[in-house]
Structures are given as structure tokens and as C-alpha cells.
Design a protein around this nucleic acid. Structure first.
Lengths: 318, 318
DNA sequence: TATTGACCTGAAACGCGTTTCAGAAATTAA
DNA sequence: TTAATTTCTGAAACGCGTTTCAGGTCAATA
């Protein structure tokens, strides 16, 4: 049962049926009611794929993320979804595991018109690639694109990183461990962390106190364990999430070792319970802005301030 | 630049180009290399929407969920995604806010061929509706479908609910508060909670100790507050997540009131930190199974046991 | 009354791959 | 060498809506 069948059955043409379905003008009352009657009688619904093909639009936005285990990604996704839903867009989850080949594959699906736009919450492909593929469709990234001419909605992280490290310094931290999702060379965010560290402590982060590939509570725990196994004792741990910091903390507690000072990120419940200092990156707003950029035709950048939150240490009731 | 252009440029027909692209047999070496050369030269990629239209398949699976604020839903989504990715399927997020009209809309999009299947992590429409729409495409629900003939992957909750309540009873809990996402009349899961409660305590849950619409930490906090404002003092709170239980706990702490015994669900980090008894519903496995059902042609049901986890209360180091 | 303009309508083309089917060419089997 | 296969190939139809454009009707303006 397609639009041509309805056309025949109603005695009008497919063009008229299409007009009725889409509530276009220039349809007589007679035509409208006749067509509607047949549509109702045969319970006809138009094929969305054919429609998308004809319209050259799918109302689908692809969202690329390495995984959904870190609150930053899930937070952005929520932000995008909350904005996309009322606008009639749907989001398609495109997991990449930081794999550039997989991401290129998604970029090609953009060329193939499968999505109206793609938002990269994180990207393994180069910014050059993103700029290149922009000619096919709207692309938004969620990192500072620097001089690259590409739409971006991102967190201005440097200030809060500086605040966090300078607070760390004020606590007399000398051996600062850094737990990152990706190494400095691979991630702009990690690079920012490094810059803030250098600016504060006047030297490079200590390799033996650096761990990458860190995402979850367990990763935090294991990092602390590996520090311990290597006889490394950080006096402060700067983690990429509160849950990660909490995991590290647990290792020390489990082994009756003194717990280093902890700094988390993303303002999670675990950090709230433990009164950890944290950095709130306002990912929900990032998601919202990313969506707005995705459906707009302009290429522009939005940045949002992140906040270093130092909770009242005395209020800890745990 | 479409397949016909490539056909002309290569001196072969669209049919042959299609064969080359899809690696079909019955293409001569000459044809293959000539076509590939032109494809490469013009950097042609086929249009996915046209392909989907032709093939009648999109490789998109719609996933309906009320929201993404509860770990149960995000957990299922992760499970689905982890299974869908290697199988070459993508998932489209379809938020419903428990709104049956919105869900019907999604069901109609299924009829319109926008998705190959739909998974309902929760449903506001009736099971009759789901059964009805099954004739158009594969539908999977994540609740016990009872006698309805529909594919389902769900958690067998009753045992762990019974265990939880009987533990509650053993703790001499008399005023048991229940925090639910939806009321008994609207949700099969809530109904199970009720049944387990009745079986254990031999009477209906007390209305004044019942709260619905509960999803987050804040909701938990507010519930406790509303109990307090109504001079209701539960001696045990059965929450629908550890975070919710944690929120309730916080209210009592903030007001220097004795904290009731807490039972959480979903085995979250907050519960782990506070050593709360919890119920683990194994949502990741549910998601995986739901996906398998979504792409299979059979209609069947899988259920997974949930676990009541009583943590060592003495080990609380917080 | 002659124009003008608004309103209707449908055939055909378009968006773009895929598949069918018939026919031709090249092999292999007999 | 002939018959029977197997391999290639492309025109056309198909999946299904949307849009364009020409042609027609009818009421309103001049």
C-alpha cells in the first residue's frame, strides 16, 4: 500500500495525495476529504525512508562518542537529546572507541546522507578531516577547534584546571598523579591538563604518576594499585571523574594506606558524598549548544565556562 | 553524482556498478576495474537512504525509553549498543517521557520503515498495542509480557523483591516507604513491588509512605522531605535506585534526623560507598538479549535473575 | 466583457540504488 | 562439433514520496 495505491483508490493523483498528507495548500475540500477517507480506510502511512530520500533530510543527527562509560559523554548526549526532541530530531548513537577508522566510517555515512549532521563529542580523526567533511554536511565538535573553521561547542577548561592545580599546590601537593582517558599526544583536553599543570608547577607531569585509558571507578582503583605496586605514593590525585577518584580512594582504604588528596571532575554523586573538590564541565549545556549548531547553517563556536568546586571539607559527614 | 553517472562515465550500466559496489558475482574483471577506477576518481559514495529504501532495511533499531536519568535505562541502552555495534546496527534514541501518544508515534515510525525494530525499555502504550504493531516489524519489550505473545527480555524481579522485603521485615521495619518511578496502576514493575510487599507484610503498602515519579537523587531527597513535612517517619526506605536512597539519606543527615534503613537498586557506586543493600537487575544483559530478539524473527522471551545484595554492614568505612 | 489572478489537478520527472529478466558471450561437457 | 552451462551485461521496473510545470477552472477586477 503506497501513495499511488491511495491515489487510485481515491480517484486523485499521487501528487494530490501527497499534498493532503503534508497539509499543503491548493487542495480542494472534496479532494482532501476523499483522500483522507481512503487513507483512514486502508490505514495507510507513508514510508519514511522514501520521504527522507525525496527530501534529502533524515532528521537524524549522528552522535559520535568513544563509549558511554564516562559521565562527560552521557551528559553531552543527554543535552543533545533534550534539545533534539522538541525540535523533531532524533539522535543516532555512534560509538567509536577512539578508533579513527570507525569515525571515518561515520563521516562517510554522513556523506551518504544517513544523517543530517554529526556531532563529535570526542574525535580520533583529525580536525583537518572534520573540516574536509564539512563540505558535505554540518559537523560539530565538542573541543576547542583553535584556528580551524568548524562549529564547536566546548568547555573552556583551562581556568578551572589552573584553579584546581593551584589549589593542589596550596595543599602542599608535590607528587601529583594525573588520571586521564587519553594520553597528552592524543587528546586536546589532556593537553590542556598538561598545560595547566606546567603553568602551576613549573615542570612536566611526572610520567610515573600518569595513567591513561582511565574511565571508570575500577580504572581509578587499578591506577592506585599500580602506583602502589611501583612504590609510587602520590600525595594528590587529579582524576578525570569523581567516580575515578573514588575508585582510587577505595584502593588506599582497602589496604589501610593513607588516602591522597583527591580532585575529581564532572560533579558526580560520589564526589558529593565524599566532599571531593571537583570540576563541573556543564556538559548538558554543551550538548544543547552542539545540537543548535548541528541544525544551523552557520559555522561558529560556543564555549562554556567550567567551574572548580571546592566543597566544604568540614561538612563531610561520611 | 549518483550511480547512473558512474555508470555513464565507466561505460557500464548502473546494474553493473551496483554489482561492483556490493561485491556481487558475475562481474568481469574489466568491468570491475573500470567501475572502481571511476568511483575512486570521482570519490563517489552511494546514498544510504536510497539503499535503505531499496533494501527495505535501515539497520537502525529504535530504542524507546521514558528518559535517560535512571541507571536502568542507560544500562539497557549500553547493553543494546554493545551488542548492536559489532552486528552493524545503530541505535536511535527515542525518548517518551512515559507518554503513550509519543510512543504511538514511534510505533508508527516503525510502520513507516524508519527502523528495523523497536525495543521498549519501558512502555506506556498497552501490550495489546505492541502485539498489534508486531505485524509490521519486530518489537521487543523489557518487561514480563505475561501471556502476551511478544518478544521480551526482562528481569525476573519477584524473588529479589521478596528477599529484600523479607530482609526488611527481619530488621523490624514496620513503616516501609516505597519510592517508585511510576504508580502501581501504571507499571508492571511497580506492581511486582507491591505484590512482594503484600506477600511479605500481609497488607497493602501504606499510601502515606508511597511516592511516585521518583528518578534521581534529588527526588529521593525531596521524598524524605515530604515524609518529614507530613510527620511521617519511615523506618525503612525501599528506593528504586541507590542514588535515590542516597538522596533520601541526605535529607535526614542534613536535618539531624535518624536515617531509616535503606534499600537501593541497580547496584550503583553511591550504594557501594554507603554499603546499602541493593538489587542488581543485570540491565546490561537485558539490553544484549533485547537486541538479539530485535534482529531475530522468532517471538520469544528471555528472563534474567536479579540479585538482592546485602553488603557487609560492618565493612562501612565511610 | 475582457483580463487578471487565485485555485486545483495530475503526468512525469526526480531523488538513488537494487533487482529482475532476457539476451549475448564465453566455457565446458558430451 | 554440438549441446549445455556458466558468466556477463544492461534496460527497465521497482521501492515510494515529492516537486515541477503545464493546463484547466472559476471568481474577481477593470
Amino acid at each position: 500500500m503506497n501513495i499511488h495505491d491511495i491515489a487510485k483508490l481515491s480517484g486523485y493523483s499521487a501528487a494530490t495525495v501527497s499534498r493532503v498528507i503534508n497539509n499543503r495548500e491548493y487542495v480542494s475540500k472534496n479532494a482532501k476529504s476523499a483522500v483522507q477517507k481512503v487513507i483512514k480506510e486502508y490505514d495507510y502511512v507513508p514510508n519514511d525512508v522514501a520521504r527522507d530520500l525525496s527530501n534529502g533530510k533524515t532528521h537524524n543527527i549522528g552522535v559520535v562518542m568513544p563509549h558511554t562509560r564516562h559521565p562527560y559523554y552521557t551528559g553531552i548526549i543527554n543535552g543533545i537529546m533534550d534539545a533534539a526532541f522538541p525540535a523533531g530530531y532524533r539522535i543516532v548513537l555512534l560509538p567509536s572507541m577512539y578508533n579513527a577508522k570507525i569515525e571515518m566510517n561515520y563521516l562517510n555515512r554522513l556523506r551518504r546522507k544517513a544523517y543530517d549532521a554529526i556531532i563529535f563529542t570526542s574525535h580520533g580523526v583529525t580536525l583537518d578531516d572534520l573540516v574536509e567533511y564539512q563540505k558535505y554536511s554540518s559537523i560539530v565538535c565538542c573541543h576547542d577547534p583553535g584556528d580551524y573553521n568548524i562549529s564547536a561547542a566546548y568547555t573552556e577548561r583551562i581556568d578551572s584546571y589552573l584553579k584546581a592545580f593551584s589549589w593542589a599546590k596550596s595543599q602542599n601537593a608535590h607528587n601529583v598523579a594525573i588520571l586521564l582517558s587519553r594520553g597528552f599526544e592524543l587528546s586536546a583536553t589532556s593537553q590542556l591538563t598538561r598545560k595547566a599543570f606546567i603553568k602551576t608547577f613549573d615542570n612536566e607531569p611526572n610520567d610515573s604518576l600518569l595513567r591513561t585509558g582511565i574511565v571508570t571507578y575500577d580504572d581509578g582503583y587499578n591506577s592506585a594499585q599500580s602506583f602502589s605496586q611501583n612504590s609510587v605514593t602520590p600525595d594528590l590525585i587529579f582524576a578525570n571523574s569523581d567516580d575515578v577518584a573514588t575508585g582510587a580512594r577505595q584502593f588506599y582504604l582497602d589496604h589501610n594506606l593513607p588516602v591522597p588528596i583527591l580532585i575529581g571532575q564532572e560533579n558526580q554523586l560520589s564526589g558529593q558524598l565524599l566532599n571531593l573538590p571537583t570540576i563541573d564541565h556543564n556538559f548538558h549545556e554543551i550538548g544543547r549548544l552542539a545540537f543548535e549548531l548541528a541544525i544551523s547553517n552557520e559555522t561558529k563556536q560556543f564555549s562554556v565556562e567550567s567551574k572548580f568546586i571546592l566543597r566544604d571539607q568540614n561538612k563531610s559527614e561520611l
